[in-house]
Structure formats: C-alpha cells, structure tokens
Computed example of a mutant assay.
Amino acid sequence: MPHLQTQPNFGAGQPAPLRAYTPGDDFYDLLIDTHRGLDDDTSRLVNARLILLLANHIGDMAVLREAMAAARHGITPDTTTP
C-alpha cells in the first residue's frame, strides 16, 4: 500500500541538478510564479484548484487521508470566529 512521501522527492530518479539549488527550489519558484499578480481571493482559488487537481492525480484515498492529517497536524482550530 502506498504511503505519503514526506521526504524531499523532487527530481527523484532524474540526473542531479547542475545548479546550486535543488529541484524543490524549482517547484517553489513555479508555485510563486503561478500566484504572481493575483489578489488574495484569486490566489486562494488557484490553491484550491491545484489541490483538487493533484488529489485527482494521486487518486489513492489512503495517501490522501495521510496527507490531510499531516497538513492539519499541529494546526489549532480558529476559535475567534462565531
């Protein structure tokens, strides 16, 4: 059964990068570029769409449950809203 990959996994199985930074940095740059010029509401919409697209790509409910639990871990609920 697949498990959630929590260790750096960008570029796994590919040749080592030639630059001083890692393929994970390339992902971060791409993510920032995806949001560049968007207001907060539109940026949240892009994030929601990205989550759904990636969840569909993963397609394994056990992995998705594990990812959601890991994302929520250590986050306290907002008790300031009625």
Score class of each variant (00 low, 15 high):
Thr34Gln: 04
Pro2Val: 08
Leu30Gln: 08
Thr42Tyr: 07
Met1Ile: 09
Pro77His: 04
Ile51Ser: 10
Leu30Cys: 11
Asn47Pro: 03
Asp41His: 14
Arg72Gly: 07
Pro2Glu: 05
Pro8Val: 02
Asn9Val: 10
Arg44Pro: 05
Arg49Leu: 09
Met1Gly: 12
Pro82Gln: 06
Met68Gly: 13
Ala69Cys: 12
Thr22Leu: 07
Pro17Met: 04
Gly59Lys: 00
Leu64Asn: 08
Thr80Cys: 01
Asp40Tyr: 13
Gly59Arg: 01
Ala20Pro: 15
Ile51Ala: 14
Leu38Glu: 03
Gln14His: 13
Thr22Arg: 15
Ser43Ala: 15
Pro17His: 01
Gln7His: 06
Ile75Tyr: 09
Ala70Cys: 10
Asp29Thr: 05
Tyr28Gln: 14
Ala48Phe: 09
Arg19Asp: 13
Tyr28Asn: 15
Val46Asn: 02
Pro17Ala: 04
Ala16Pro: 14
Leu31Met: 14
Ala70Lys: 12
Ala62Lys: 15
Val63Glu: 04
Asp29Arg: 15
His57Gln: 14
Thr76Met: 07
Ile51Leu: 13
Thr6Gly: 08
Thr22Ser: 15
Arg44Gly: 03
Val63Lys: 03
Pro23His: 04
Val63Thr: 11
Asn9Pro: 08
Ala62Ser: 14
Pro8His: 02
Asn47Tyr: 06
Pro8Trp: 02
Asp40Cys: 10
Gln5Leu: 06
Asp29Leu: 05
Asp25His: 13
His73Asn: 15
Ala55Thr: 03
Gly37Leu: 00
Ile51Val: 14
Asn56Trp: 11
Gln14Leu: 12
Leu31Arg: 00
Ile32Tyr: 00
Gly74Trp: 01
Ile32Cys: 02
Pro17Val: 06
Thr80Tyr: 00
Tyr21Leu: 11
Ile75Phe: 04
Leu18His: 14
Ile32Leu: 04
His3Cys: 10
Ile75Glu: 05
Asp40Val: 15
Asn9Phe: 14
Asp29Asn: 12
Ala69Tyr: 02
Gly24Leu: 02
Thr22Phe: 09
Leu52Asp: 04
Gln14Tyr: 09
Thr80Leu: 03
Phe27Glu: 05
Phe27Leu: 11
Ala70Thr: 15
Leu64Met: 11
Gln14Gly: 09
Ile75Ala: 05
Thr34Tyr: 00
His57Glu: 09
Pro2Thr: 11
Asp26Val: 13
